[in-house]
Amino acid sequence: MSVTREEVRHIALLSRLDLSEAEIDRFTAQISQILDYAAKLNELDTANVEPTFHAVPLENVFREDVPGQPLPLADALGNSAATRGSFFEVPKVADGS
């Protein structure tokens, strides 16, 4: 196993996922398989190869600093599960800021 149950638990926490013990077992095995497969790439010598950040050879794509038309409020809030006035409403996450 190239990933531990503890790591899977940690990733789940970061992603705000509540996994059962059975799910942790299953995902530990699956993620390990994926990582092992990807590890095949390590067999290649890439010492002298620049990392590829982008598949398309584009650079310096810019936008002029000219304001456009924002969404009407009703559309902006339209997909939300809960709203209050012109706010989205969500469960409180933490105190402070």
């Binding site: 006035g85 706010f87 969500v90 469960p91």
Partner: peptide, 8 residues
């Protein structure tokens, strides 16, 4: 709004 936050 107890237990809720508003998002702008």
């Amino acid at each position: 709004a107890r237990g809720l936050s508003w998002v702008d």
